[in-house]
Design a protein around this nucleic acid. Structure first.
Length: 951
DNA sequence: GGCCGAACGTA
DNA sequence: GTACGTTCGGCCC
């Protein structure tokens, strides 16, 4: 998972010119000249062979010039104007470059309005941002500007770097080579090129300035502008005159030689994944052009590794005619309105095969599954929809009709046949599958033996870009309907309009095909469109790092956790349930007796009336509902004053909560097929980046009280196994100490001290149960965005006294106040907070005129970087956990649950000793190397037959 | 049947 | 004071 990706970008157009001049003229059996093509073919062969070798490509694409005009012609009409026509016997070889590339099943990219150099620069930039290394296969001097460019170091890889490979001379070009050639480092090459000009491309430069003079000028003055500025003070000469006269021409040249690094990428990087080359189309090509020696090598199996997939070869992509007008921002793809009539219902084998071929060629396909129910672990497949472009979408029904003996079953490709055909596409490394909440589809398809990969998720892309962003408090979500309305200004068909709702609801498999096709294909179409809009925004807006390094790798990991589920002891739960029921019944009788009447204890409204009106206890009205508050703190107060009924109600509430939410609900949640409980995690559930858990929520299983703890004992390992729990100790306080740079806190953590005791000593000068407890409350108050009223309420003191404690805290822990101040200043200015790993959370109400609203945002904004960084860290640990365990021969150790700072595993008891240090190491080191923390991350591990026993 | 607020479980 | 999800009663349509 952490292995380094290495992208090779082949400058196809430049290569063929050089090959033409260096290789002898050859012709194929049909008499077509193919010398340059032969050179190109052998080069591709060698590159493909280097797959998996050190420094060899993991991804590869060929980039071509699409036409003679580019955006540079808009800047300078005569750009490339006096280029001589190519030699007669080279012309017919140009299209053969595409044929050759296609024969190797390699992607071939060209785009109207851009030159190959610009596309190469743009792809190189995107790849290095992801931490990939990039090798540009070319010897074009313009491209040397890119050599040595690196993305910032992060995440177990030293950051992606760019070098060049001249396959003609078989020579790597690194920074040293560039300096040797130009006398200046790569970032200054553009200045040199601008001065010297280029007669072939008709870049004017400065007349009379050649490579030598240009280099000297840049060496002496630093860059072009400085050289031009210094010209008047140079000693009188022809050179000086020309520098002054032709300054504008030089500046124009500077623009012309600058590579455009932000072109829209016609195809996603993942689609460049290099696989073994299938022999089939290649052999036809080699035979046709008489490349017999290569053909022999192919037949002997020595050249390219044996094929694994049989997908159709790539086709050159000339994406949307959108000639760039020299603008900095990439154009939004122009998309036609949704057209339901354009969607196809795929009911025959032939139609299915055609769609699979189209999708394979496109190398990017939006996928959506339709199922019989919402629960992915139990849902049966009703159909699959695919989209490869706006309005280019289909629905493949697989489980429609036939639910009873009278229901007609429409014509459909048999499920198993369809799955067998779809599997290579859905699992192909070379085809990116895009989905909205694709974890769902991953889990559904897993039951049909398909491991969907690689994937992109528009919901998570939106989350990485726009978490917390909402307009007037609405529309901040990441659901498809919401995204579609926000970004596409289109309201997709609602599920309830297709299937109905409530009692009259019908399963999707009963929906008639024309309607089902509209709904399902539209979902895939909308997903495709959203991806086209959101994916480029990631790199433009700084979301790539968190998306590629943290959230995206987590999708399959969390999907597997959900599928594993966890075993619960049904009998034990049932036992607790009836035990609770009995106690609840007894309490009910007592409470009704004390109240002097029967009433619904679970109704705060009725309870409030009984307590404060009928029984006459003192307490206040609260809230806009005009209702008495009867929450825990109110009842505890009454109980402290001797109200027995309040004590009984508190007990009743605790037991009812445990019974209804846990002992009953968990039994009902056991999956009949697996016998285990499978929660569903939301990867976009919390604005801060935390996961959330639903159906059932396994992140709020009781632990604090003895009686609640019994519920944890109901989560058990299979016989022979144990549950192992590993949790970060005080991770948020540690992060606060690091992020706010608080010396005494950092020191305390470094020495493994009891942090709350240390705080008590600093604050009160003494440590006992009371002061330690108060110190703990204050520590948490800091993390949650402190207010004098909140802290006062918690500690039972007046706001003034709480403020005095806050002041003292700031004084004793310098750094905290500054952190709060700087964080808020930055959020006010930029609108978002950021974690150490670059996750943004937006706070649109941070400058609100409404004080409560504004202060609420301020508290959340203080907390978000801390909570979010903690979430980033445990996510990184999760993504690394499986490979780390597998690498230690512990691939059978299963990660089951995540509870914000805790991971729960199931493993054979005999493996605890081996697994614990691996788990500990991965978790403790999860911030590195992207972030170097000043405090150690403590990890505590326990294990036992149950979750309760593991703590 | 669907929605909201109160209450309460977790980190 | 932060971040969640579920249950329940009460009320709406």
């Amino acid at each position: 998972m952490d292995s380094k990706q290495h992208l090779y970008l082949v400058d196809g157009s430049a290569y063929i010119f050089r090959a033409y001049h260096r290789l002898p003229p050859l012709t194929d059996p049909e008499g077509t000249p193919v010398g340059a093509v032969y050179g190109y073919t052998t080069m591709l062969w060698r590159l493909a062979e280097d797959l998996h070798k050190a420094d060899g490509p993991t991804h590869l694409a060929v980039i071509l010039d699409a036409g003679s005009k580019s955006f540079r012609n808009d800047i300078y009409e005569d750009y490339k104007a006096n280029r001589p026509p190519p030699p007669e016997d080279l012309v017919p070889q140009f299209p053969l470059i595409r044929d050759a590339t296609r024969a190797f099943s390699l992607p071939c990219i060209e785009e109207q309005g851009y030159e190959a150099d610009d596309l190469i620069a743009s792809y190189a930039r995107e790849a290095t941002r992801r931490g990939w290394d990039v090798t540009i296969v070319s010897s074009d001097k313009d491209l040397m500007q890119l050599v040595g460019k690196c993305a910032e170091p992060d995440d177990g890889i030293e950051g992606g770097c760019i070098d060049m490979l001249d396959t003609m001379k078989n020579q790597r070009i690194d920074i040293a080579e560039v300096i040797e050639k130009f006398g200046v480092p790569p970032e200054k090459v553009g200045d040199v090129l601008a001065l010297m000009g280029d007669s072939v491309d008709n870049v004017p430069g400065v007349f009379g300035v050649g490579p030598k003079t240009a280099t000297k000028l840049i060496q002496d003055y630093g860059d072009l502008e400085s050289a031009l500025a210094a010209a008047p003070s140079m000693k009188k000469s022809k050179l000086q005159e020309r520098l002054i006269e032709q300054a504008e021409q030089a500046r124009l040249s500077r623009v012309l030689v600058t590579l455009k690094e932000d072109c829209a990428l016609p195809m996603p990087l993942d689609a460049f994944k290099l696989n073994s080359v299938p022999p089939e189309p290649l052999s036809v090509f080699l035979a046709r052009h008489g490349f017999t020696s290569l053909l022999k090598r192919l037949d002997a199996g020595t050249g390219s590794p044996t094929p694994t997939t049989r997908l159709n070869p790539a086709k050159p992509v000339t994406a949307g005619a959108n000639p760039q007008e020299g603008a900095a921002r990439q154009p939004l793809p122009e998309m036609p309105a949704i057209d339901y009539d354009a969607y196809e219902c795929v009911q025959t084998l032939a139609a299915l095969e055609a769609w699979i071929a189209r999708a394979a060629n496109a190398r990017l396909v939006a996928v959506d599954t339709e199922t019989s129910m919402l629960d992915a672990m139990q849902a049966d497949l009703c159909g699959v929809s695919l989209a490869i472009g706006p309005n280019q979408a289909c629905y493949i029904p697989l489980g429609h009709g036939g639910s009873d003996m009278f229901a007609e079953r429409p014509e459909q490709v048999p499920l198993e046949e369809a799955m067998a055909l779809l599997k290579p596409l859905l699992e192909s490394d070379a085809v990116l599958k895009v989905g909205q909440n694709i974890k769902y589809d991953l889990n559904v398809l897993a039951r049909y033996g398909i491991e969907l990969a690689p994937v992109d998720d528009t919901m998570i892309e939106s989350f990485c870009l726009d978490a917390g962003r909402s307009i007037d408090g609405i529309g901040g979500g990441h659901g498809m309907d919401e995204l579609s309305q926000r970004h596409l200004d289109h309201k997709p068909m609602a599920f309830k309009d297709v299937c109905g709702t409530g009692k009259k609801a019908i399963p999707f498999g009963e929906v008639l095909l024309p309607k089902a096709t509209c709904y399902a294909a539209e979902d895939a179409d909308v997903t495709w469109r959203l991806h086209a809009l959101l994916d480029p925004r990631l790199s433009e807006e700084g979301g790539t790092r968190i998306y590629e390094r943290v959230d995206r790798p987590l999708i399959p990991v969390v999907a597997r956790m959900e599928r594993h589920g966890i075993r619960v002891d049904r009998e034990k739960l049932a036992g607790l349930s009836s035990q609770f029921a009995e106690a609840i019944g007894a309490l009910e009788g007592e409470i009704h007796g004390l109240a002097g009447q029967a009433f619904t204890i679970g109704s705060p409204k009725q309870l409030g009336d009984i307590l404060f009106d009928k029984l006459g206890y003192k307490g206040g009205r609260k809230g806009k509902s005009g209702q008495y508050s009867t929450d825990q703190s109110v009842l505890e107060k009454l109980a402290g004053e001797g109200a027995v009924v309040a004590t009984k109600v508190l007990e009743w509430r605790q037991l009812s909560k445990l019974r209804s939410t846990y002992t009953e609900a968990l039994q009902a949640a056991i999956n009949p097929r697996t016998g285990r409980v499978h929660t569903s995690y939301s990867l976009v559930g919390a604005q801060t980046g935390r996961l959330s858990s639903t159906e059932p929520n396994l992140q709020n299983i009781p632990i604090r009280t003895e009686i609640g703890r019994q519920i944890r004992d109901c989560f058990v390992a299979e016989p022979g196994n144990v549950l192992l729990s590993a949790d970060y100790s005080q991770i948020e306080l540690r992060l606060a100490a690091h992020m706010a740079d608080v010396p005494s806190l950092k020191e305390a953590f470094a020495h493994g001290e009891d942090i709350h005791a240390r705080t008590a000593m600093e604050m009160f000068g003494t440590v006992d149960r009371d002061t330690r407890g108060r110190a703990k409350t204050i520590n948490f108050a800091i993390l949650y965005g402190i207010s004098r009223w909140g802290l006062g309420g918690r500690l039972g003191v007046e706001a003034d006294e709480a403020q005095a404690m806050i002041d003292r805290y700031f004084e004793r822990f310098p750094g905290i106040q500054r952190y709060i101040h700087e964080t808020l200043e930055s959020v006010r200015e930029r609108g978002y907070s950021e974690t150490l790993f670059g996750r943004k959370t937006w706070f649109p109400r941070i400058n609100s005129k409404n004080q409560a609203e504004r202060q609420g945002s301020e508290r959340a904004a203080i907390n978000a970087p801390i909570q979010g960084t903690s979430a980033d860290i445990i996510k990184r640990a999760m993504a690394r956990m499986e490979p780390a365990l597998a690498g230690a021969g512990l691939g059978h150790v299963k990660m089951l649950l995540q509870v914000h700072d805790e991971l729960v595993f199931e493993l054979p008891e005999a493996d605890v000793a081996a697994a614990s240090p691996v788990i500990e190491r991965v978790m403790a080191g999860a911030a590195e190397p992207a972030v170097r923390l000043d405090v150690p991350l403590g990890v505590e591990i326990g294990f036992g037959p149950s979750w309760g026993a593991a703590h």
